[in-house]
Amino acid sequence: MRVTSYRDPETGGFAFSEEAKAKADAYVARYPEGRQASAVLWLLYLAQEQNGGWLDDAAIEYVARYLQMAPIRVHEVASFFTMFNHQPLGRHHIQVCRTTSCWLRGSDEIVAACLEETGCGRLGATSDDGLFTVSEVECLGACANAPMFQVGDRDYFEDLTPDTARAVVRALRDGKPVQPGSQSGRTSSEPPADNRRTLLAEAGQG
């Protein structure tokens, strides 16, 4: 039920695929009748996935129409969350964590290495070959394996050094298989091979 007046969403040519529609309906069904707006984040995510990793106005307003929300409300949500991209991206979106733990462990060097290896030039830009976009993000919650970056929406590459970061980028460019997770050989967040317990401790000290 519309309880306010607002213009009709301008959805342009965007529409969910059958598959996305089925998923969207399942998300909407999770919420009580009249609260379908709660599904807005799920649907924006679906729309972003279908739209090649970014949201244009048409996709955002399509979600508004789908959920019977005022277009401006969906624009507010979509612009608030950094996980929604508002420009086209390269095929691989490298998001380097730069929050405290990663920064202390050298995220600046990882960023520099990524920018150089991908040829992006600056943060937020897409490489000329259209393969990469590098951006900095806030904490991705992998502090015990700092520094790290995330590729796309899924894969974490942890315990990076500038060299391993370059290696991941090269592998992605060449379409070779990459192994997400720790790049230093750790299986989880167990103490590093040198068995240090604190950053200040000498190598080998327990």
Binding site: V3, Y6, R7, I72, R73
Partner: peptide, 29 residues
């Protein structure tokens, strides 16, 4: 939204980049 009943103005973005916007449309109220 509440008194005018016209949902055409919102706060876009966040933090340092937050801006009040009507998406460049006149407020039809």
């Amino acid at each position: 939204t509440e008194i005018g009943g016209v949902e055409e103005i919102g706060l876009i973005g966040r933090g340092e980049h937050a801006e009040i916007s009507t998406l460049e449309k006149a407020i039809n109220s």
